[in-house]
Structures are given as C-alpha cells and as structure tokens.
Design a protein around this nucleic acid. Structure first.
Length: 376
DNA sequence: AATCAGTGCAACCGCCGTCCA
DNA sequence: TTGGACGGCGGTTGCACTGAT
C-alpha cells in the first residue's frame, strides 16, 4: 500500500474537532495566515496532522464559507457545471463563492444525483437513461396492443412470487382496461413518448449529453416548437409510439426478453405514476395502498396549469418545460404549488423534493424503474 | 419507549501532481 | 535526474440525527 496515513504517527488526534481546537486553529491562521500545513499544527499547539488542519479550515472554519441550504441558482449552477466538468468538485466550487468542494460533492451525492436518477437522467452522463426509455416504451406499446398485459407470459416466467410485482401487473392491467376504452391512454402515452423523445432526440442525434441550457432550463421550450413528426420519427429504438410503429409486437417481445432481469425489481418500491395519468381517475376499487408508495402519483399534474399533458386532447398542444419546476428549493421555487397540487403532493417523500413531482415534469419515468429498480 | 432504517455531512483516506533540494 | 515533502483532489467512511415501526 501507499505511505501510512500521516495521522497515524505521533499519536495525533483524529475525529471530530472540538471548539477549543477550532479556536486554536482560527487564532493561529488569523495571526500567521495559512499554508505550511505540516508545521502549522505544531506551532498552533494542535495534536492534529497538517492535512486535517487544512481540511478543517478549508471546509469549515474559513470565514467566507456560506452555510445553509443551496439556493436554486446554486443548484442549477452545480448541475450545469457538472455536466461540463464532471466530478471536478474544486472546479465547480470555484464558480460558487462560499461553497467548498466537499460541500458541493456531498450535496451532489445526497441530493442532486438522486433527483436526476429519479427523473431518469443518468447523473454521470446527464443523458436520459436509455434502458428506462426503452422499458417505458415497451410498457406503453404493450398497453396499446393488449388490454391485458401478461407480463409473466411475456417474460417467460411463472406467476410472480413477489406480491408487489403482482400488484404492479394488476394495476397495469386495470389501467390498461380502463384506458384503452377511451383512448386517453394512447394520447397520454403519445405525449409521454413525445416528452421522452424530446430528450432522446438530443441523445441519439447528437450523441452528446443533454446540455443544461436546453434540458434544464426554460430554453427547452424551443424544443417543443418542433413539428411533432420531426420529433417522432427519430430514435425509434427508444420511442415506440404505438400508433406509428407496426413492428411493436415483435420489438416488444424482444425488448421484454432483453430487459426481463431488470423487471424483477418491479415491485420493490416506489411508484409507477403514469398508470393513472388523470388526476382523480384512479380506479375506485384500487386503493392507494395497492401499489406500494406512489409518491408522484398525482403530483405530475397541475390541473390549473397549461403545462399538464395528461388531459391533453391535442397532441400538438406543446407543454412548456422548465427546469424551474424540476429543481427548486422551498425558498426560491419559481413554481409554487397551488393548493390542489400541494394536496396531491402529500405523498412526496420530502418537502424539499416535492418540486421533483412538479407540475411540468414531462420527462417522467416511473420510480420503480430507476434508482431502486434498475441499478444505476 | 425501544428499535431500526434512512439520511446528511464532517472527516478521513489514498492517490496524484508539483515543487524543491 | 530523482526522491521526498507538500498540497490538492475525489472517493469513501463513520456517526449523529430523524422519522417510521
């Protein structure tokens, strides 16, 4: 192995810093400035290694450190910079005055990465996750072509041993039965496909990560001005818009086989929010508890907003798409929830993450298919 | 009230690049 | 030219806190 940890020698102290130690370090640096970390602890009367002192100073004691929650602007900046710089936390921190690389790194790992994952966006590449897009398409296509999706049959396996998975399939079939009768599902799925395609279009045509300026910001609205045909014809592998794809049954079968291992995660937890897209139209006989934990179940819809797509009767009604509604902080949300939406958010995991279930979350992949389902 | 699981964050670890004798 | 010292960085760990059961 490499050289031994510097703190192992001389009986130097490790672990949390005491207030006394902090004060000693502050006093010393105020008098002598920082640098020469190797000799600093000795001169300051600290039983710490220089490295520990440097970390304590740069990550915690520095007077210009900004504490408290990240603002929306900061969060957006982090995502944008991460898209460009990757895990170069110090470089990212250089653009955020008062924030340390360690703080940004922690915030990324504990908040932003999870949210992007929930949104179906790969936090590493900043592209939509292809496997989720495909699975979403498969489910959509199957829903269109069959009023009873027989997943066990499709997957070539017996009845689900896991009751949660069985519940999921049941729910899916119930949704299918109801929705195929009024065609709203088709429109909804088209819309959902369309939304996915907007993102997928970027990936497949350019092979570049989605640029924050388009996908994360209001500028994404420009994407929606494209003719629907232009958008739908591309990226067929990820967007099998049912009415337009004659090869759906074959592809569906193939893709189901391809993805079947991952489907084993289906019933593990979280949601499949798209199954009952219309708020208030959840089947009466299917209580919320029938499917485990649907945090975004209703929350992707703001009934008062022009943004909502699920009631759309016109495929060309292009929803707006704003990053503001993806990631906001309670203090700076640009899309405050109205009362009905707030009510429907009741099952969101945390207040802070409610914005993730926000009204114009078009790029919506069931939670059961992302972070906890299909491993990142 | 006790226990457990999940979460957030400070701190540590190990590697790497740069500097300098 | 070389090797040790040093600082910086990204990844990981450990623990305190909180909410659920």
């Amino acid at each position: 192995m490499g050289k031994p940890p510097c703190c192992d020698k001389d009986g130097l102290k490790k672990g949390p810093w005491t207030a006394e130690e902090d004060q000693k370090l502050i006093d010393y640096i105020q008098k002598h400035g920082h640098g020469r970390w190797r000799i600093l602890p000795k001169n300051a009367g600290l039983k710490r290694c220089g490295k520990s002192c440097r970390l304590r100073w740069t990550n915690y004691l520095r007077p210009d450190i900004k504490r408290g929650r990240f603002s929306f602007e900061e969060e957006e900046t982090i995502i944008q910079l991460h898209c460009v710089l990757g895990n170069k936390w110090s470089a990212i921190a250089a653009h955020l005055p008062g924030r340390t690389d360690n703080e940004i790194k922690n915030y990324w790992n504990t908040h932003i990465r999870k949210r992007l994952a929930r949104m179906g966006i790969d936090p590493v590449t900043h592209t939509p996750r292809l496997d989720l897009l495909e699975l979403s398409s498969i489910l959509s296509s199957s829903l269109y072509h069959s009023s009873q999706l027989n997943l066990p049959s499709l997957l070539g396996i017996g009845p689900f041993a896991n009751p949660n998975i069985q519940n999921l399939v049941t729910a899916f079939n119930l949704s299918s039965q109801r929705k195929t009768s009024d065609m709203n599902t088709c429109q909804y799925l088209q819309q959902n496909q369309f939304d996915n395609t907007l993102v997928g279009n970027h990936q497949f045509q350019s092979s570049q990560p989605i640029q924050p300026s388009t996908i994360y910001s209001g500028q994404a609205n420009q994407l929606h001005s494209r003719p629907i045909q232009e958008i739908q014809h591309c990226a067929a592998s990820s967007t099998l818009s049912a009415p337009f794809q004659s090869e759906v049954p074959q592809l569906t079968q193939a893709k189901m086989e391809q993805l079947s291992p991952n489907l084993a995660y289906f019933g593990s937890q979280n949601s499949l929010p798209n199954l009952w897209p219309n708020i208030g139209e959840r089947p009466d006989h299917l209580a919320m508890g029938d499917i485990p934990n649907f945090p975004e179940f209703d929350s992707i819809i703001d009934p008062n907003s022009e943004n909502h797509v699920l009631h759309s009767n016109n495929i060309e009604r292009i929803p707006s798409f704003s990053f503001d509604s993806f990631i906001t902080t309670p203090s700076s949300s640009s899309t405050p929830l109205n009362s009905s939406a707030a009510t429907s958010y009741a099952n969101c995991s945390t207040e802070y993450e409610d914005s993730y279930c926000s009204n114009s979350l078009m790029y919506n992949i069931p939670n059961s298919l992302n972070a906890s389902g299909l491993r990142m």
